Amino acid sequence: MLDYDREAEEYDASRGGEPRAAAAADAVLALIPESAGRLLDVACGTGIVTRRFAAGRPGLKVTGADLAHGMARHAAARMPGAVVLADSRRLPFRDGSFDAVTSVWLLHLVDSAEDVRAVLAECARVLRPGGVYVTTVDKAAAHDVGSDIDAVLAPRPRRPARDAAETVAAHAAAYGLVPSGQARFPGVGQGRSPRRTAADLRRGWFTALTPGAPIGERLVAGLEALPDQDRPRPDPVFTLRAFRKP
């Protein structure tokens, strides 16, 4: 997994910046009832999306939580006094503290099925009855847009999809959450180009590939042989699922 303390400085610029954040925040807020008063954004990262939750709903009190010091520092600069350093598997909040809980681009990073269950359990625990939990699902699959880059990358090893929609729904149901909606939004500015994808392979962005491994170098060679090295292919389209606590 990437070192998100080190990634914090370049994270926003490398992942679509404000346009992507705006698309994500708008889609998430559309799934959260207007009556919600308190929202917790779990794994808030640099706060680039979290800040937009607060700006998009002036009456909504938003709290961000992240485990990485570097990410939390950036988020706190955007939202002074509203960000805590916390492990999503052990949230430092009382039961039923929030009307809404979000986790955008988190579950695909979790290492084990046990930890995914722990995250879902905590999100359900701090959610009040009638509250809504919103999360992204199928993150890795969203990046397979049917391009020539995807054809080159097809033989690569892959981690189990901890955020597969059906898996997340099953865990949510185990903690008493029921489906309440879904949405999709574009990963603006995240369309892959061959040159950037080769660089990402070499720096360890593909978590099941060790930088410098023979299969990785073969994939890099295939990417370097593609035309239009700097032309981004289509942006991914991400999926959100919402669940309500009865």
Rank of each mutant, 00 (worst) to 15 (best):
M1N: 13
M1K: 13
E10H: 15
E10M: 11
E10V: 15
S14Y: 12
G16P: 12
G17E: 13
P19Y: 12
P19E: 11
R20I: 09
A23M: 06
A23D: 09
A24I: 07
D26A: 15
A27W: 08
L29Y: 10
L31P: 05
A36W: 04
A36T: 08
G37S: 14
L39D: 13
D41I: 01
D41P: 02
V42E: 00
A43C: 06
G45S: 09
V49R: 11
F53W: 03
A54F: 06
A54K: 02
A55H: 09
G56M: 08
P58W: 11
P58A: 11
G59T: 07
G59R: 12
K61N: 14
V62G: 03
V62A: 08
G64H: 07
A65K: 04
A65C: 14
L67K: 11
H69Q: 15
G70E: 10
R73S: 13
A77I: 09
A77M: 12
P80T: 10
G81H: 02
G81P: 05
A82F: 09
V83L: 11
A86N: 08
D87A: 03
R89Y: 07
F93R: 10
F93G: 11
R94F: 07
G96T: 05
F98H: 04
A100C: 10
V101T: 02
S103G: 12
V104A: 10
W105P: 03
L106H: 10
L109E: 05
D111Y: 09
D115S: 09
V116Q: 00
R117D: 15
R117A: 15
V119W: 00
E122T: 00
E122V: 01
C123K: 00
L127V: 01
G130W: 06
T135E: 04
T135D: 05
A142Y: 07
V145A: 08
G146Q: 13
R156Q: 10
R159D: 14
R159H: 13
D163A: 00
A164K: 07
A174N: 05
A174T: 11
Y175K: 07
Y175F: 15
G176W: 03
L177A: 01
S180R: 00
Q182F: 14
F185D: 08
F185W: 08
G187M: 14
V188Q: 11
G191T: 09
S193L: 02
S193T: 09
A198F: 01
A198C: 03
G204D: 05
W205D: 15
F206S: 08
F206Y: 11
T210A: 15
A213N: 10
V220F: 04
E224K: 04
A225P: 01
L226F: 04
P227C: 03
D228R: 13
D228I: 09
D228W: 10
Q229M: 13
R233K: 09
P234S: 14
P234I: 07
P236D: 07
P236V: 12
V237W: 14
T239L: 14
T239C: 13
R241S: 13
A242C: 01
A242N: 00
F243T: 04
R244K: 05
R244Y: 00
K245H: 07
